[in-house]
Nucleic acid binder design. Structure first.
Lengths: 362, 362
DNA sequence: ATGCTAAAGGAAACCGGTGTCATTTGCAAC
DNA sequence: GTTGCAAATGACACCGGTTTCCTTTAGCAT
């Protein structure tokens, strides 16, 4: 029984955390305005059931005192927090940040905060982790990034626990209210047509990981464009990648080891495209003279390497903004209802990594 | 008085948001364990004032029911939230993300969440915005990233409103408890000695923006190393940058337009170093044959360009982890008190962007 | 004036925890 | 067997809002 001599034996006394600079409570406002706290509450929550003159009087007091309701108290009473969650299991750091940026833009000037939460893809308890997180934090709403967003169980989960959600994706995943997507397949087709119009016939693909919807969409676009142009696609021209820089290098090595090299490579994201470029340089190949490259996403790296990469711009910041606005639509912060777009168009950005193939390799 | 015909005239009724799958409350646990709710609260908060057998009984009930205390209620009662804030006004996306990663690693398996908050540098109301944010969200603690972390007013503010804080920096900013820093000056000196040992004598600097402590530290290290080696530094070899890729290009242009070019350039961060490389390529200069480059930070871009950049690795993920652990030290989540390091060492990473200068330009 | 109805506003309970303080219990000393 | 004192526990108010439900007031017709 020696386990008892712990810390000081008093319960951490003092409720002193109450802010020193005497923040007003709803009671103070009520007293100053000469109304009940419920009336103040009605003003705060834009209740239609009150007299204009009363509202104005209370609002005047609020303005003068600089009163701001305590979010913790509201969260407790309302059963949900004023926080938007961002859940991701994505390997691409830049994408996460751009998404954050978009969401934060939408949340700017509102009282919502952004909580980020990475999860372990493949972890057996992932779904439980997410449930636990959502239930505990009582988030107002949550944004799911791909690839985890492709998991339909999340939608079920959110509906079950009554949490607003938006899933980001590369194709239609859910109803418009719960989704923000781009059409990756069409964007890739456009990029491939460009490559083909430049004269390329042997085009390699650095594919994305299996199980990623976006990877499938992009690969389908790739294959469709070749088929459309009547170009045969040998299996060997498709190399698997993991959406990482290193996997781009590895995949490119296998492509460039072929007896007849591709004259162009389409990589399913910019990270891998940077890997393609790196691998080409390691072999002393010129880009775009010896090898043309197209990437996808238009992350900063695409414009920072030499030559800057021709790529498909994924309007991710705008998508993030739209996702956040969907979540808070209907609140006083954003009274306009659901006219946020659910579908975004990716566009080809032409930079310096594409040129017609050399005649010699025809 | 036509302003009255608003939405439905009933107050949004139904308190139905109470989770459907009947989460237990502290009262349920108290009843099941045959104790008062206060005793359950003591168990949750690791109070030393209770009997082992009671504690075990209550813990058993908690385990069986899977009870988790409501964070909103705790936040209200305790006057602070279980959230760590990350406040930044930094232009470098990668740095922010790495910091997030470090913090999230530390917070993993705890009940703390991470709230991110960008602020407008230069905005006149910035300090008020931050105060408002901290007061409203009642954050448990907050991490400030440079350059805003260099503002001493933030420390005053946090102490005033009773919010734990940690400032990240490039030099000693505060007492150990409130700071995590690297020694940028020494790291730059090491990098410069390497450059000089390779035979470089005309070395250009792409400096960071005025007002950034890190920029000053790095510039001082640069100047010290040259002085130490007895190398005179003409004013023209220092070009101002803004820590952005584009500013790196501009600064390099001015450096390379000099009648006698530098044989090497030190850039105060990797973004700008990538700009240096880009600008060199635009002129057809070979790197490292015609121009050696050293950057700072070791962000992913440094290893993705060609040639990969020699740079100084700033251990930012580890620093973020340390910062977060400092904040939650003393809580049950991290009972070990304050032995988190406050000072980190940056190391030179040698890659492919440095070579001895050509004899011709000697 | 009187009665009726709907709008406006207030009192008290409640959300789910924690702090304060009083009470009970356990055990050693007298 | 008391007394004394500290350890263990509980009752109750409280954190700062929201909701329920009821009372008061205003507007209008009779």
């Amino acid at each position: 029984m020696t386990t008892r001599q712990k810390k000081p034996p008093i319960e951490k006394n003092s409720r002193a955390n109450t802010t020193p600079n005497s923040k007003q409570t709803i009671n103070d406002i009520a007293r100053l305005a000469g109304v009940s706290k419920k009336t103040v509450s009605r003003v705060i929550n834009r209740s239609p059931l009150l007299n204009e003159s009363t509202r104005e009087r209370v609002e005047e007091v609020i303005r003068q005192t600089g009163y701001v309701p305590n979010p913790q108290a509201r969260a407790l009473a309302l059963g949900r927090n004023f926080l938007i969650g961002l859940i991701h299991d994505n390997p691409n750091a830049q994408m996460i940040l751009n998404m954050q940026q978009g969401i934060l833009e939408a949340l700017h000037d509102t009282d919502f905060g952004l909580v980020v939460r990475p999860v372990d893809r493949g972890s057996a308890t992932m779904l439980d982790d997410i449930r636990h997180f959502l239930e505990r934090q009582r988030l107002y709403g949550v944004v799911f990034l791909p690839p985890i967003s492709e998991n339909n169980a999340l939608a079920t989960l959110c509906k079950e626990i009554g949490c607003r959600y938006v899933r980001m994706g590369s194709a239609t995943l859910d109803d418009a209210q719960h989704m923000v997507a781009s059409n990756d397949r069409d964007a890739v087709i456009e990029a491939m047509r460009y490559l083909i119009s430049q004269g390329h016939r042997r085009i390699g693909l650095v594919a994305g990981p299996h199980g990623f919807r976006s990877a499938r969409e992009r690969r389908e676009g790739f294959e469709f464009a070749l088929q459309e142009a009547g170009i045969k696609l040998p299996r060997s021209l498709i190399a698997d990648g993991q959406y990482t820089f290193e996997s781009g290098i590895t995949a490119t090595d296998s492509l460039l080891d072929l007896s007849v090299r591709p004259t162009a490579i389409f990589a399913c994201n910019d990270e891998m495209a940077a890997g393609v470029l790196f691998a080409a340089r390691e072999r002393g190949l010129g880009v775009p003279e010896d090898l043309s490259i197209i990437g996808f996403d238009d992350t900063p790296i695409a414009s920072r390497v030499w030559p800057p990469l021709t790529t498909v711009r994924w309007p991710i910041v705008a998508m993030g903004r739209s996702a956040a606005l969907k979540l808070i639509s209907g609140t006083f912060a954003n009274p306009d209802e659901e006219d946020e777009p659910s579908s975004f168009i990716s566009t080809l950005i032409r930079r310096g990594s594409v040129a017609p193939p050399k005649k010699t390799s025809a």
